[in-house]
Computed example of a mutant assay.
Amino acid sequence: MEEVKLHGTWPSPFSYRVKWALQLKGIPYEYIEQDTSNKSPLLLQLNPVYKKSPILVHGGKPICESLVILEYIEETWPENPLLPTDPYDKAIARFWAKFADDKGAMMWTMLGTTGEEHEKAIKDILESLRTIEEHALAEKKFFCGEKIGITDFAFVGIVYWLEVIEEILGLKLLEAESFPRLHAWIKTFKEEPIIKENLPDKEKTFAHLKRRREREILLASS
């Protein structure tokens, strides 16, 4: 097998998407931590367009953007599939994965803002959570059925990171009574050994995201 390297940033959910997919597939890889606040020449060389991680390097060739990387992993190593085989089901999985990417930025907006922008982000997040609850999960164990897939990895922000952000902000959006399907999915997802054994340390994540909030609010007010 050609050498596989993953350039990621702790504790980015986008990096964890790729980590978990590689581990689920049983693909050996070298992890290289990148500091996005002090971007290395190598990072800029591997991703000159967006200048960020994660970046998968396979046989010396870089692949960027986490959902694109997941698709590449699926096509390159088809064992333990991350997508359904049926074309329609596959299209639906990709639709919700894109939805996760399109809406995921609101969580970080909520973290790093105050006032009207902050309140709008909360409203938008609740609307997105209701959409996922009502239309994406149905009665399935995971988004694509009985096994973890690309769509589950796309939504990892609400598995773990949203909970930490809620604690920092002193609010609760993802209530079990309002979102029973999402709560059941999160519980099932976290119980998977590969996920359970490879979550970032919660205290460190809390401190990291709290510093990020303070920094972004200070920059916005200056």
Rank of each mutant, 00 (worst) to 15 (best):
G115N: 08
K51L: 09
L67G: 01
K123R: 14
G60F: 08
H208W: 12
P11L: 01
E65Y: 05
N198I: 06
A21R: 08
G26E: 08
F155L: 12
S221R: 12
N198H: 15
N47I: 09
L199W: 03
A105E: 13
V156D: 11
I63K: 06
K98I: 08
V18A: 02
I63G: 03
W108T: 11
E146W: 02
L126M: 13
R212I: 02
T109Q: 12
Y72I: 06
P13G: 01
E116H: 07
L169I: 11
T151M: 01
S66K: 05
T205N: 05
E33D: 12
F206M: 12
E75G: 13
E167C: 05
E119L: 11
K141N: 09
E134C: 06
K25V: 02
A184I: 00
L209W: 10
K120D: 11
D35S: 05
I195E: 08
K196V: 00
F179D: 04
K98A: 13
F206H: 14
L126A: 07
W185P: 09
E75T: 07
K103M: 01
T151S: 11
A91S: 15
P193M: 05
K51D: 10
E79I: 07
E203D: 14
E191W: 02
K187G: 00
W108L: 13
E166F: 05
E163K: 13
E133I: 04
E139C: 05
F155P: 05
L126C: 13
F155V: 00
D102E: 15
L6I: 10
I165K: 04
E2Y: 00
F155N: 08
E75N: 14
P54Y: 08
A138V: 09
W96Y: 14
E191I: 00
W20R: 03
W10F: 13
Y88A: 06
S53L: 08
W10N: 05
M107N: 10
P54A: 07
G60I: 11
H183F: 02
L173M: 15
V156E: 09
W185K: 06
L173V: 11
G104K: 08
D86H: 10
P28L: 00
M110W: 13
A138W: 05
L24A: 05
R181I: 00
F179W: 02
P48A: 09
P200W: 06
F179A: 03
E116I: 02
P13A: 01
L42D: 06
E79N: 13
K51F: 04
G104S: 03
I217M: 01
F189P: 01
P28E: 02
Y160M: 01
E119C: 00
F14Y: 15
E167D: 15
F99W: 14
K51Q: 15
G60W: 07
A154Y: 04
K5T: 06
S40W: 09
V68K: 01
A97M: 01
P200I: 02
S37I: 01
A93I: 03
E116N: 11
G157W: 03
H58V: 08
R211S: 12
L43V: 04
M107Q: 13
